[in-house]
């Protein structure tokens, strides 16, 4: 909620090599267009606010009907919101709600762009498990891009999930 939480969230998400992009609502359409400029197409879950796609200029695909094989097409990106986010750990939490869609949408494409509103950020994981509107929805917690520590216990980014994760942070008040 507080500016401090937003700043902590941004710093912690950045620690794990997510691209973090603070912006105002007015800057949002252009920023999203810039981030997604290289995509062959942008997958959109149901409920994506129209202003997110206003300046996109890329082909968009409805996330509702795509199969995993279709999502595996080269160069696809996915643009989503989230249910909540955790400042302490830089974590996004998706629950399949509005502008989030099915779990595979944020898994198969190689680039995930996620819009976070400051009001969605909670301090730490215990706050998250209490704040979740419905814990029985399919939940995915995402902290940075896909990674592995399996080779000599060194963390390297980029295995099966999206290798690029961009997080767009909107300010506390709207």
């Amino acid at each position: 909620m507080t500016p401090e939480l937003s700043a902590l969230f941004a710093a912690r998400a950045g620690d794990y090599r997510a691209g973090v992009h603070p912006c105002t609502p007015a800057e949002l359409p252009d920023l999203l267009a810039t981030l997604l400029a290289g995509a062959s197409g942008v997958v959109l879950p149901a409920g994506t606010p129209p202003e997110w796609t206003a300046r996109l200029g890329r082909p968009t695909l409805s996330g509702d009907t795509l199969t995993a094989a279709q999502l595996d097409a080269p160069g696809l990106a996915v643009l989503t919101g989230c249910a909540l986010a955790v400042a302490e750990t830089g974590t996004l939490v998706l629950d399949g709600g509005v502008a989030q869609g099915r779990r595979l949408l944020t898994l198969v494409p190689d680039h995930h762009v996620c819009v976070v509103r400051a009001a969605q950020i909670v301090a730490d994981v215990p706050d998250l498990v209490i704040a979740l509107p419905d814990p029985t929805r399919p939940l995915t917690m995402i902290s940075g891009p896909s990674a592995t520590s399996d080779i000599e216990l060194n963390r390297v980014e980029g295995v099966h999930g999206p290798r690029r994760l961009d997080i767009v942070c909107l300010p506390p008040h709207r």
Binding site: R12, D15, Y16, V86, E88, T89, G90, T91, G96, R103, V125, P135, T136, R137, P138, L139, T140, M141, I142, S143, G144, P145, S146, A147, S149, L153, R155, G161
Partner: peptide
Amino acid sequence: TGERMNPYTSIFTGVT
């Protein structure tokens, strides 16, 4: 892993 949080945590309940 010595991380504040691992990259992915999935929580699921029955089938959706």
